[in-house]
Design a protein around this nucleic acid. Structure first.
Length: 451
RNA sequence: GCGAGAGUCGUAUAAUGGCUAAUAUGCCUGCCUUCCAAGCAAGCGAUGCGGGUUCGAUUCCCGCCUUUCGCACCA
């Protein structure tokens, strides 16, 4: 894992966020090659989940949403637990529950200050369950939602808005819009790639757990109780995508949730075998019944029933969700592709064996020698033409082997070399990243061969 | 958030209460090079931030930040 983090930095894939100020926890910036790779992953995902499927459409919803959205989703109320910690044994107590035990009602809408006041007044009556001590820290509210003051010019914090805790809510909010303005009929799906923000207590494991993340979500709407077959099909489709982008099968597995949230009917995760900490979730595929639409119907007062044009029935569709963490898939792809080949004699070659559709650079163009102007000029010409059609890089620095290695390390599948024969017959060599074999081809056929 | 460790050029390492902070690699410029990290020469580039002790701190102390591991958290 250290090697991958180091490569990410060294070769301009991923940098620590706000690095020149000492860094900011849980935030990462994607560098020149990182953003290319990330865009290619998104493109592949979008192709597989929107364009290749007749009954899916895309969406891009505003990041900020009406505050009530997060009440409806359960993010505001259910996940703001007031906690205090025992200074002796570090055990944590739920302050509202402990107060409840001694007959004092702590309202869940109380502020941190109000709770602290209540807690301070009653500290003597509360003991740590583990060690019996009464020495606690102050009460802290733990809520993962990130607050903002969009549209609040009073400075009073009276109307807090939240950054999205998950990207998928925008899909539920637009379900009715899409039914009303497109020809989509249940069963159909909506796909979206969006950012989410979480106040993770402890960001960890590089891109795996961050405070700002991006999610690629699909929500598939089905008739109630007609979820099972569709769910299995979606699971299969998601698995196939991972295989199609070249992830090794042995590094992937399904894992079923043992404790389902109350509304879910089934939940499976796709896990990747990350270096150094093992299998962990990349994507969740969840069968969520009608919970999401029902909640928004309740909180917004808008009828979100669907009228089935074939049967005239009215119902709230059930939702089958897929939600992939972009940072997590990025890290999985990098890990899976990272290869160090032993060439003997203590020599080795570092290669990122990325699927060629994902590689940040599709093709690198080199003149064989830098000090032969006619080679350089010809190489520039080839580069200029190719770069109209694919992501290319020109390099004439150092010897040819070094330039191959540089491209190997960032996963460039093809290197094109202009040599003296090129000047005679307009052919070039195309070198393959994985085999290092070369093939002599005509310049006119280049585009076709490597795109 | 708690506990423990760590933080030196882009990367990987070295060293030091006081000399110009070293080595490799990288990057870069020039020469050279007719296909897999060759060579020669020049250059770039670091003690995370702030405070304290001290004549002098990268080194010792404190705070903060970042990061790693464990706990907890992860709907």
């Amino acid at each position: 894992m250290d090697d991958i983090v180091s490569l990410c930095k060294r070769r301009g894939f991923v940098y620590q966020g706000s690095e020149i100020y000492g860094g900011e926890s849980g935030l990462y910036d994607f560098g020149p090659y990182g953003v290319e790779l990330m865009n290619n992953i998104k493109k592949s995902w979008w192709q597989a989940n929107v364009h290749a499927k007749e009954n899916y459409v895309g969406l891009d919803s505003a990041m900020f949403k009406h505050p009530k959205v997060w009440e409806a989703s359960g993010h505001v109320g259910g996940f703001a637990d007031p906690l205090a910690e025992c200074k002796k044994c570090n055990n944590r107590i739920r302050v509202d529950k402990e107060l409840g035990k001694i007959g004092i009602t702590a309202d869940e809408k109380m502020s941190e200050q109000e709770l602290n006041k209540l807690f301070d007044e009653n500290r003597t009556k509360i003991k740590c369950e583990k060690c019996g001590e009464q020495d606690f820290t102050n009460v802290r509210m733990f809520n993962m939602l990130v607050k903002s003051n969009l549209g609040d010019f009073t400075g009073s914090d009276e109307r807090p808005v939240y950054l999205p805790g998950e990207a998928c809510q925008g899909i539920y909010l637009n379900f009715k819009n899409i039914v009303d303005t497109t020809r989509m009929k249940v069963p159909f799906g909506i796909a979206q790639i969006g950012k989410a923000f979480r106040n993770e207590i402890s960001p960890r494991n590089f891109l795996f757990r961050t405070r700002e993340l991006e999610q690629a979500d699909t929500q598939f709407f089905v008739k109630p109780n007609e979820n099972k077959d569709a769910y299995e099909a979606i699971k299969q489709s998601r698995w196939d995508w991972y295989i199609s982008i070249g992830i090794k099968k042995e590094n992937l597995r399904w894992s079923q949730h043992e404790n389902l949230v109350f509304y879910a009917s089934d939940a499976w995760d796709i896990e990747y075998n990350y270096p150094s900490y093992g299998f962990d979730e990349v994507e969740g595929v969840h069968d969520r019944t009608d919970y999401d639409l029902s909640q928004h119907m309740k909180f917004s007062g808008v009828d979100l029933h669907y009228s089935d044009p074939y049967t005239q029935e009215k119902y709230i569709p059930w939702v089958l969700e897929t939600s992939m963490g972009m940072g997590r898939i990025f890290l999985a792809i990098m890990s899976d592709a990272y290869t160090v080949e032993d060439l003997g004699d203590g020599q080795s070659r570092t290669v990122l064996k990325l699927h060629s559709d994902l590689a940040p650079i599709r093709c690198a163009v080199f003149p064989l020698l830098k000090n032969k102007p006619e080679l350089v000029a010809k190489a520039r010409e080839v580069y200029k033409e190719l770069s109209q059609h694919m992501v290319c890089e020109f390099d004439d620095n150092g010897n040819i082997g070094k330039r191959y290695r540089r491209q190997d390390e960032i996963g460039t599948p093809y290197c094109v070399v202009i040599d003296f024969d090129t000047l005679e017959d307009d052919t070039v060599t195309v070198r393959n990243r994985d085999t290092t074999n070369q093939e002599r081809v005509e310049i006119t056929k280049l585009k076709q061969i490597i795109s």
